[in-house]
Design a binder for these strands. Structure first.
Lengths: 237, 237
DNA sequence: TGTGACTTACTAAGCGCATAGTCACCTGGT
DNA sequence: ACCAGGTGACTATGCGCTTAGTAAGTCACA
């Protein structure tokens, strides 16, 4: 008695669910047709709420008022829909942090600040698509997966270089570059797990706040907690 | 021509794959039988590498040398296997940070340090099971999902309180408690996305490093970047 | 302007395979 | 003799994708 793959959210639920509200309709290239873009946007919402495998081709096509077969006019397979989403999102996020307006900033402090603010803001703005891009990688074919990994690596390098520059120029403390860069990326990415557009933080505010945290992590020297915290004994001789 | 749900990792691949190595075999209650625990451990690996919906009951049972039907001797459904994994992992992680040895620490600085170190270390140690717990929530029934949310909330409160105490006692800077607590949790959780047991960080090292970052975030006052960074103009009057 | 050839976007119907879960039966230890 | 734990064969159903066909648009050209 094979169960339906999912039930938590049905197609009609997806309309107007506040945690699925983001700007992903604006993500797709202009070169794509109207219908393709609407399919991609619908797929983002389905994949985000129920997962790739729990989403049927009927869910996606039905959400834009088409029959299941219509999907195959525009995309060769369901996996390709996922790939287009993930590829586009990764490319856009990378583009956001390689914008010349950012890379041109001389001061390492301002540079890292702007980098983190941008990256965080991007993820907040497109958090539903970004969530799919982070959580549904297992749905990709090995070839497509490999391609995405490459983009991720390039993104990592951007952050690592920014931290490195601050350390070598002395603008930052002498921190562990790789680890700090990793932590900064974590802050920028992990928000897709919980961010909601109807919460109290706007993408800009969250970006600025996270950028502050990144600077604190990069610029503050390590704290020494002092001698072992002996359980008892406050100041008795 | 319905395709097989997945292909990226077949069952035999899962043996000895280094990124799927963690301590989840130690997670399960002693009260559970040997076979149940082996099934849960196998399920963790399958779910982590291919996702809940892409994992078949044959994958799980086959991985411990049993027939598919044997799964139903020990668990009422595949969803229940997922729930047991997620429930146990969330409960253990909460237990780790409510350990009296931690909650008893008077000094807010040492307290937060220990809290973050413990939490991070836990996630690193059980990163495969933790990954399933974070990424496969969509596979749960609404009732089970609700139950997990409750545990998550309790965990959040632990961190928020720890940060709050430091701020009110003046041990920390006057930071935004909710946001900082959220960022700290992000650091502790997001590592499940990339952590590997065969990497360069041991769980303890990662815990200590993240704890340092948490203190920097909580104890450093906000930086003022000064006046607007006018594009040109260095020091020309 | 009319016509036939071709294209684009779509649908209805359904194939064929995969899968969660069931059930009657088996089996070894107490 | 019993029964917990396990099996092989099966069912019911879901789902990705295909196929055959429709309707409307475009274009070359007589």
């Amino acid at each position: 008695m094979a169960k339906k793959r999912q039930a938590r959210f049905t197609t009609e639920d997806l309309e107007g669910l506040p945690e699925l509200e983001d700007e992903s309709p604006m993500l797709w290239d202009e070169s794509r047709g109207e219908v393709q873009r609407r399919l991609l946007t619908a797929a983002v919402r389905c994949f985000a709420s129920n997962g790739f495998h729990a989403t049927t081709t009927r869910d996606i096509s039905g959400a834009v008022g088409l029959s299941p077969a219509a999907l195959y006019v525009h995309f060769p397979s369901k996996e390709d829909v996922l790939f287009e989403i993930i590829r586009t999102a990764h490319a856009r996020a990378l583009a956001a942090v390689t914008d010349p307006a950012l890379t041109g900033i001389e001061d390492p402090v301002r540079h890292l600040w702007a980098l983190v603010a941008r990256y965080t803001e991007w993820h907040a703005r497109y958090h539903v698509a970004a969530r799919v891009s982070q959580y549904e990688l297992a749905g990709l074919s090995p070839e497509h997966y490999e391609q995405i990994l490459e983009t991720r690596h390039r993104t990592n390098v951007v952050f690592r270089s920014a931290v490195e520059r601050g350390v070598t120029t002395g603008a930052f403390a002498e921190v562990d570059v790789k680890r700090v860069a990793r932590a900064i990326l974590s802050l920028g990415i992990d928000l897709v797990r919980w961010y909601r557009r109807d919460g109290s933080d706007s993408p800009e505010q969250l970006g600025e706040f996270t950028a502050q945290l990144a600077l604190k992590m990069a610029m503050t020297p390590d704290l020494d907690l002092g001698p072992a915290p002996r359980p008892e004994s406050t100041l008795a001789s």
